[in-house]
Nucleic acid binder design. Structure first.
Lengths: 241, 241
DNA sequence: ACCTGAACACCGTTCAAGT
DNA sequence: ACCTGAACACCGTTCAAGT
């Protein structure tokens, strides 16, 4: 009895589980340790319970990660002021990509998760408003937001590895052949000419050029310009489109 | 002694391990059971050895999956005949996406893998040749191939879940609230108007419209048209671009 | 209804020891 | 150099049993 009271004082009443509490804890965990550590088991441990308990509130790991993402999405989508609609559109997209870059592994989840939470909806609204301001027809704008976000997500997924630990180990390991993936492509491109791949040989330099940011921004411009120039239903089927 | 001979006859000499053999077996495994089952442990089992043995030839699971992808890529990239360069370009891109759709989980790997094997190089060469035929400047073409493949890969990753088993279980489970992800978005969009998201409410129908194939093809057209209309280095910085 | 301990069926990767 | 058994340190998810 006295002991029970003692335990009570040292470790205050364990808060009841709830979906909101679980997700808040998960967001804290992703900030502190990365998405890799946001597993059902690790999260249960942080909540001082067993993994089975979480399944009352969360369908599975994928759904958990989707909820974490939506929570983080709340941090963006305040439409920036000043500049043309195009500049503001790209700025908002860059801040979306920025979030994904901040939390390795999140982009991979975002690609599969098909979110529909309030954070995501607010982001969609902002993008649609800017495209509308730019005079982009509504039918194209609706499909274009998907394209723009998917491009941002995929770019982030390409550049952020799920497991930072593995990446760190990789760096530390003194492997004999040792070329990383970029070097591997560079080496392969050098041999392209001799292998009967003339276009590849000619474009080798350009294929490896540019920073991630330059390519990202160019990509957004391509998508915006492409949307402006591509009707969804061509008036005449086999037209210039 | 006699027993040893008997064993020899029943189970013929275990072939020596080699990188090529490992990857061939892995490709067979992905065809038969999906990428999910191509784990180091499962693959070692198929090769009648322990998982540790594979690490002599393969750096880690990611590298293994990348090698499998490149092998499968060998099946495409025969440039189709007939039609405009644009039609042929889209046809080849659709066959790329087709492969990724065939093997769930492969697209997710492709997004992170940054391949550089012969299958990938052949594909790049074919795309560059078609863009060149279309008169797309080389510097844009080099960046555009990345964009086109990334879009195809991301689309496939979105639609093919890594774990088909989980998807099957999901279908079987009679959950009370039960809406799948698409329904979840549909429900969320219905409420958009009342939540002060006018553009979202207006675009709701269009956001959910179209088949996957229609959106994919439109996306390719957007990227091609966008590339045609977007210089990599604008002559005048703050131009119409 | 909510929560849990325990179990089932797996993972990737490393390392010391063998051949 | 190549190969391996065994271990380390984890996973997601389910289920029967409890409150």
């Amino acid at each position: 009895m006295a002991q029970t009271q003692g335990n009570r004082r040292e470790r205050p009443a364990k808060p009841a589980l709830s979906r909101a509490g679980i997700i808040t804890t998960a967001v804290g965990l992703v900030r502190a340790e990365g998405l890799d550590r946001v597993t059902m088991r690790r999260l249960a441990q942080a909540l001082d319970t067993g993994p089975a308990s979480l399944y009352v509130y969360v369908r599975n790991t994928a759904e958990l990660h989707a909820a974490v993402l939506d929570e983080l999405l709340g941090g963006i989508a305040r439409p920036p002021e000043g500049g043309t609609w195009r500049e503001r559109l790209i700025k908002i997209l860059l801040s979306y990509v920025g979030i994904l870059f901040e939390y390795p592994g999140l982009a991979q989840s975002a690609l599969v998760a098909r979110p529909s939470g309030p954070g995501y909806l607010t982001l969609l609204e902002a993008l649609l408003a800017l495209l509308d301001e730019g005079g982009v027809p509504r039918d194209r704008a609706a499909w274009a937001v998907d394209l723009l976000l998917q491009f941002g997500t995929a770019t982030a997924a390409e550049h952020t590895t799920r497991n930072q630990t593995a990446a760190a180990q990789d760096r530390a390991r003194p492997v004999a052949e040792g070329p990383d993936e970029h070097d591997a492509l560079r080496v392969a491109l050098r041999a392209a000419g001799a292998q009967g791949r003339p276009h590849l040989a000619a474009a080798a330099g350009e294929l490896l050029s540019g920073t991630g940011a330059e390519r990202l921004t160019w990509g957004f411009h391509v998508l915006i310009n492409g949307t402006v120039h591509t009707a969804r239903q061509p008036a005449v089927p086999s037209n210039d489109l």
